[in-house]
Design a protein around this nucleic acid. Structure first.
Lengths: 154, 154
DNA sequence: CTTCCTGCAAACAATTTGCAGACAG
DNA sequence: CTGTCTGCAAATTGTTTGCAGGAAG
């Protein structure tokens, strides 16, 4: 029976087609990834998965994330110092908007990036394969909290 | 006597003005940063500095890099997995063009980023403070090497 | 002189790996 | 059954820290 969640179904089908095993751990990890909108880190995924599978190990989380990345179903956002974050909803490069207070990461609308990339490729002579565009700032919610009443100013 | 390199002189003046000490290690580390165009990592800086100051330790490199970053004279490019890279020539956020073969990092010309950022800030309600834009690809030199004669195709 | 800086070694934290047993197909 | 995947623990790696001695001002 299909799970009802299109992203999850797509990945299950992909695993089957490619001959990889469909394990409860893989499903649980991807279910968390496809459900959450805030781009969790490995430890956060771990603690969620453990609620249903208490014997799961952090190594399995990392192995599964690397595996999902290798089949192109998860995008890894690397952060030296802090831990990496994972995007299972949009697994190809796209801009991110990161709140430095609450650490939330969201996906903003942003046209004109594609044309900028193409222009750069022409100018530089590089064969461009990927990119990364992260904006750091303070989200409306955190702005409100830190200075109530003047959050919209400046 | 001034060193003759404007970037280096500017930082020396800044250290003096702010009351920080001007040590040979700090000068040597910043000299490497201001001279190299390829955005070296800590270990690369370490091995260059050691040639003139054999007793220098890697801890000093890291401490000095963190210090230069804190006074806004070095930009740190974080890479989880690989090591971080440092830009001492343009110490504020700007796009980078990274060759995945030879690991060289250069600074491309790119207009229209500023207007894109401003538009995003308006749309999202975030107070944007910084950003990061990295393009990954293969540089013209490496393209030539891997497939001589058809590097310009595709 | 006094305080900040350096150098050493040990500590750290996120991630990876080796291996034996478990289980999906 | 059979080969892949999991779970455990130990290893790895880039970076940070604590502290005692050293040198900049």
């Amino acid at each position: 029976m299909p799970s009802g969640a299109p992203r999850l179904d797509k990945v299950i089908r992909k695993l089957r087609d490619l001959g990889f095993r469909i394990t409860p751990q893989r499903l649980a990890i991807f279910e968390v990834l496809s459900r959450r909108e805030d781009h969790p880190g490995a430890e956060q995924i771990y603690s969620e998965v453990k609620q249903n599978f208490p014997t799961t190990s952090i190594a399995t989380i990392y192995k599964t994330l690397a595996f999902l990345k290798s089949i192109g179903e998860v995008l890894e956002l690397e952060f030296s110092g802090d831990c990496n974050r994972y995007d299972g909803r949009i697994p190809h490069p796209h801009p991110h908007l990161i709140c430095i207070k609450c650490k939330k990461i969201v996906d903003p609308e942003l046209a004109s990036l594609a044309s900028m990339t193409e222009k750069l490729a022409r100018q530089s002579g590089y064969r461009l394969l990927s990119h990364r565009l992260d904006f750091y700032g303070i989200c409306p919610g955190c702005l409100k909290k830190e200075s109530p009443g003047e959050a919209e100013s400046r």
